[in-house]
Structure formats: C-alpha cells, structure tokens
Design a protein around this nucleic acid. Structure first.
Lengths: 257, 257
DNA sequence: CGTTCCCTTGACACCGATCAACTCTGGTGG
DNA sequence: CCACCAGAGTTGATCGGTGTCAAGGGAACG
C-alpha cells in the first residue's frame, strides 16, 4: 500500500511523541474496543483500504446527492457530516475523527443524503463499497465489528439529540468537548491532557445549534470557570470532573457493552 | 403463531377500514421499501418473531441498564426511546411506530443504554437476539434489509439533530408531525389524511425539546394557521404543502436510495 | 506587509421557560 | 345515571437565555 501522508496533515493531527506509522492505527484502536475485532479482521481492513485521498479544509469528501463510490477511513484530520437548511443555517450532525469509517451504508445504497466536509487538512484511506460488502458477508467477526461500530454511532447521535433538546448552551459545549476528548483518547490521540481541536468557533457553534457569537461567550465562560482552555486549535481540560459535571457527561455510550 | 391482540389495542391503532390480520404487516410494508426484502425474508421474519407481549401506557418494554433478552417488532401502539437527565428533564430520542424493530443491536450486545417505554397500549412480537443473529448471518438479503433499516434510522436521528439545532419550536413540531405522517403512511396507517397520534402534548414536547406549555401554544398556532388539527389523539393535516413548508420538510431520508 | 479569516465584546430584541391559575375530558365508583 | 377525580389541555404574566446587529482587535498566510 503506497501511502503519502502530506507533512502538514501529519504535523497537525498525529500524536507527536510517537508518530503513527500505520495509517489505520486509529481505526484499529477503536475497533478493538468491541470484542469482535480479531487478527483476521485487521488483515481484512488493511487489505481493503488500499487507496488514499488528501482533502483540504472546506473541501468535500462527499457532496449531498453524490453517487458515493468510495468508503473512507480517516487517517488524520477531522471532517463533519452536515445539513444545510433552506434559511441558510448549517447543522453539523456528525463529527468524524481520525479512525472513523464512513459512510458504511454505501455498502448497500450509494446516495448521500447529506454532505461530508473536511474541517482541516484530511488524509483518508479508501475502499470500494462492493469490496467492503464482500468482506462483511465473508467474515462473521468483521460483520459483528461493523454492527458494533454502527451501534456506537447511533449512541452518539442519540446523545446529541438529548443534549440539543435538554441542555443549555454552556452544558452543550461542555458535553461536546467531553465527547471529543473521550473519542480522541480511544483513538490514542490525547497526550498529557492536551489534544488538537481543529474546529473554528463557528464549527463548534454549528455542531451545538448555537450562533458563533454565543459559542464564543460560552467558551470564555468555561475558561473563566477554570474548566477548559481552548485556544489556537488546541484544547486542555483544566478540571475534568468539573467539566463532566457541568455537561452531565457519562461516556458509557462511547463504549457500549 | 398464536397471537392475541387485545381488543383495546386493535381499536386504537389498527386501521379501521380494513383491520390488519398479519401482526407483522406494518414491518413488512416498511421493509419492502428497501430493495432487498424478498419472499424468503418474509418467511424468515414470520418464523423468527413467534412470541408476543402486551404493554400498557407508561410501562417499559426495556429499562435502562437491562440485559436485553428479546428483540421486538411493534405490531400496534407506539413506544419511545428516551433518556433521563440528571436535572429531571426527559428527552425522547426515538419514536417507535408500528412496524419498527428494536433494538436490532441486541444481536451483538445486550446492554440497553437507555429505556424504551410504551406511549399507549402496545402489542409487540418478539424473538431472541441469538435467533435474529443466526438468521442475519444465514441470509444475505436479510442482512442487507437490516442494514437498510439501520441506515434509515440513522437518517431519522440526523434529521432530529438538524431540527433541534436549527429550527424554532413552531417548525420543529411541524416537522415531527410531517415525519410521523410519512412514516405511518409507509406502514399503511394513514386513511383519508387522518391518523392516530397517541402522544400527550407532554410527549410531543419531550420529543421536540420544548416545555409542555409551549408545545400547547405551538399546536394552537398551527391550528389557527390552518395547517394541522390535533385533538383527542387524532391528527388531520389541513394543508400538507403549508405544513411541509413551515417545517422545511423533505421526506427523502425516510426512503433512502 | 497587507489581506482575510477568525475571535471578542457590547447593546438590544425576542423566543421560549417558568409559575400560576383554570377548564375540559375520560374514567371510576356510588 | 350521576358525582367525583385525576390527568391532560389551555391561557396569561413575567423573566432569562440566545439570537441579532454592529464594531473592533488579533492571528495566520501569502
């Protein structure tokens, strides 16, 4: 598998203490949390994802309505699945972090109902939908792994619904940061309590259903309260307990049993 | 398959013009919208779901934390997957209508991360997780059908996120009614533009992330605007075009290609 | 060194929460 | 059949959280 990682992307998103060699290592780290991802599955994934793409911030990996001809695994960088509303609002409905595979359902149906856009410079491994389906149908534990990952994703979607419906802006932002931190940790991307957050405040706002202005005020308040520092695209959680309490965060949904 | 449908549930939720004989007919109607649900799949489902339960309004089908020992298909009645927040709020994260199968992921992992409660008198067919998994692994088109249904569910979850994040209460309520109407139509439960909505205004509020009081005001406004009548647990859409416009509704996500 | 995003802050308006009645409906028991 | 009662629906008054508009400052990049 020939695989160019542009130096800029590697610098931004890969852990710096011990640079990752295997571009799929984040995916494997997450998949291993389920109990079905064995050595055979690792080989399958490594064999399947033999392509690679590089996408700059603001560019689409997939556009709404696209015939979707590839399935991706993010190796570095972040992306967002979003929908545009008639009145001009944008809602981020899913945050895609290193190690995430999408859109898995292209296996059986290729239309994209919403777009996926790079939030910073991304590198993604690719495979064809048909190849993935064949692999799934051919290996029971790989099937179970994908079901497990799907279940996890649905848990994340439901948690977002609960947040948007019940929490105020302060708690919503806090909750999203808690989730990001936990997910990055599962992918092995948190070091010394610091991690990269390549989101603009506008991105953060669009994920939480608030305006950019209010996202800013909320972040300042979180900082004044000694819970969280988020500057220059790097985050540091000052008081993990306090932040989780403010958010009502319980990470169980990120590692379902 | 011996199968008692209590008369009360049948009266409330089954179409009255032509009472449904097959308790799984709603499920089959939905599953056939995907392109993989063939005659063999129908037989598999009929064979698998050989149990039945009856649950009264307010009772749980599954409790948060339950070891989940059965998978359900709602034959009549509605249920809701919800989460309780620390401060006492309740958010409905998924509305389960006749024909819906849940929790599919009990196939591979049996812990429930949130509860499922009957919204009115429900009848559900049941099968064991192990039996469902065996059937999935044994039939390719059945596998694809479940993936298709899962994709549809994720589309519904994402649409809820977009609504909660970007729309005001008026549009949110309108959107949920549009979605309910479309889903019931797919299950064959809309007759002459009328359909049963066994939700209290409080239920509707908890699904839309507003208070009961405000859900009431919104419904009155929708009625004054000539878009929707919702009284005595029955809904009638007066102006479908107007309602969809107010909601920014596009039903494509309910029948993904 | 200039341009372009992005971040930051203030003033004001409005949507929806909250609190507090009151009414209507359906079900239960006398 | 009627009386009662609990739950659900309805409405008004007030308050707070967020949106909106506007302006200026700072950081990144060519």
């Amino acid at each position: 598998m020939q695989f160019e990682v542009p130096p800029s992307a590697a610098r931004i998103s890969l852990p710096r203490a011990e640079p990752t060699v295997d571009p799929l290592s984040c995916f494997k780290a997450k998949a291993r949390l389920g109990e079905f991802f064995d050595g055979e599955c690792e080989e399958i994934v490594a064999r399947l994802f033999d392509g690679a793409v590089h996408v700059a911030r603001g560019e689409h990996l997939l556009r709404e309505g696209d015939e979707c001809s590839a399935i991706f695994v993010l190796c570095s960088g972040w992306a967002a699945r979003y929908v545009h509303l008639a009145e001009g609002g944008r809602q981020i409905v899913e945050l895609l972090l290193p190690g995430d595979m999408f859109p898995v359902h292209a296996m059986i149906a290729s239309d994209m109902d919403d777009g996926i856009m790079a939030l910073n410079s991304c590198v993604a491994a690719t495979c064809s939908p048909a190849a993935l389906e064949a692999a799934v149908l051919g290996n029971t534990n790989f099937t179970r792994t994908l079901w497990w990952l799907t279940r996890r994703e649905k848990g994340i979607l439901r948690a977002w619904i609960a947040n948007l419906g019940q929490l105020n802006a302060y708690a919503r932002v806090a909750h999203l940061i808690c989730e990001i931190s936990a997910r990055l940790a599962q992918a092995g991307l948190v070091h010394d309590g610091h991690f990269e957050v390549p989101l603009t405040q506008e991105d953060l706002a669009d994920a939480n259903g608030v305006t950019g202005v209010h996202a800013n005020r909320t972040l300042r308040q979180l900082s004044r309260d000694g819970l969280l520092e988020l500057r220059h695209k790097r985050a540091r959680i000052m008081d993990e307990d306090g932040l989780q309490r403010a958010a009502g965060f319980d990470g169980a949904y990120l590692n379902p049993g």
